[in-house]
Design a binder for these strands. Structure first.
Lengths: 215, 215
DNA sequence: ACCCGATTGAAACACCTGTTTGAATCCTAG
DNA sequence: CTAGGATTCAAACAGGTGTTTCAATCGGGT
């Protein structure tokens, strides 16, 4: 049967791996660093997870599932009271759950944003599949919510602007100090809301938004 | 004296390294992959650059210098005619030179954005020093230019929003297909301009921009 | 023509990587 | 209490890493 006493070993490995992956990336982090930091035997990783790649996916999924579940939950809250929802409330539902991962005194949210950044940068196919499999559904729901909050926005343009928000979120949350994280999230919501509104207020300008073109 | 015939070897190494670094990151790319792709001997890297780390910095600086020089040049053009400058023109000067790196048919700009992404994600101290040493000056100049184009914006808030723009730029330009790059840049300029303007239009709201707070 | 520094080449270096093995230990179900 | 599967442990494995070495080759200056 499953012995829950061993969960201690598994969790120690996951925690240590998460910390080291966030700081050094996946490839630069060795199993010996992880097992030493977790105070478990080197073979424990391959015994409990099968391979280093499987450990990476496990570390990744543990937080991403929780993050996206929290996002959808807050999105439902934002969508419930009014129709159409307020744009800032929708963006809040996307941005702020990244902070909520940090329960207690440790900055799990901050760490996971660093890991997300590594995942985006790496060209690891398995990781990208896991990422988009989990993200695609969430992105679609948020795109739909924004589309109702902001009628008239183009689909392709909206998708692109969501990428702007994801990029800005991961970049700044991974870099900023932990105590600034909430202020960063608040600023980003305002920034993104204004950016999104600007696309719908000036219709029929697609592809020629700037007066300056390159030589 | 310097024999220019050897520049062929050095450039072949730099080109191959740049391509592989962009695709796989720094640590995952081996010297044997690089030298095999460049069709030079394995020892050539350590002979011409001293170490793999020095090669990484060389690949990095070659483009970053050109990128930031092009940015400052375009910024001067935007600042010359009018005082205060138009906000979109300033943002254009920051965003569009990333595309201009791609001369000819190959997408150097796109590749370098991927490398930038890896550099941001990695916690390589030397790389970060090189990055901020080169970027700090440029960022200061753009922050000043935006401040004159948008009087009343707070310094701390502006710095944060510049990080949003950098994050959105690297994330989307590294991910998007090459032919979409220009459209992405145009959209980003509009998006960022609106975001920046929103911070100054509603003063005295710092730290409480969202009505929704976490639990 | 020769010589000598600059460059290339093939091989080896010492070290580190993820993974596997098989015995020792733990822990619980019967 | 004991049998047996789950878990830990130390050690080794095969392969890959960046780097070094030293002989071979190149190429221009006196």
């Amino acid at each position: 049967m499953f012995c829950l006493a061993s969960a201690s070993t598994i969790d120690r490995i996951l925690d240590s791996a998460e910390l080291l992956f966030a700081e050094q990336g996946f490839h630069s982090t060795t199993l010996r660093q992880i097992t030493q930091s977790a105070e478990v035997n080197l073979a424990a990783v391959n015994y409990h997870f099968g391979s280093k790649q499987a450990l990476i996916l496990a570390v990744f999924r543990r937080r991403l599932d929780a993050l996206n579940a929290a996002r959808l939950e807050r999105l439902d809250e934002a969508l419930a009271p009014e129709e159409p929802p307020q744009l800032e409330a929708v963006l809040d539902a996307f941005v702020h759950p990244a902070l909520a991962l940090s329960h207690g005194r440790d900055a799990v949210g901050h760490r996971f944003m660093r890991i997300l950044m590594h995942a985006f940068a790496d060209r690891d196919d398995q990781l990208h599949r896991a990422l988009s499999a989990e993200y695609a559904h969430v992105m679609r729901r948020f795109a739909a919510a924004i589309a109702t909050a902001l009628p008239g926005v183009e689909k392709k343009s909206l998708r692109r602007q969501l990428d702007f928000i994801v990029g800005a979120l991961t970049h700044t949350m991974a870099e900023c100090s932990v105590k600034d994280a909430r202020a960063v999230a608040n600023d980003l919501v305002q920034f993104a809301a204004a950016g999104l509104r600007s696309a719908v207020s000036s219709p029929a300008m697609d592809g020629a938004v700037c007066t300056l073109e390159m030589h």
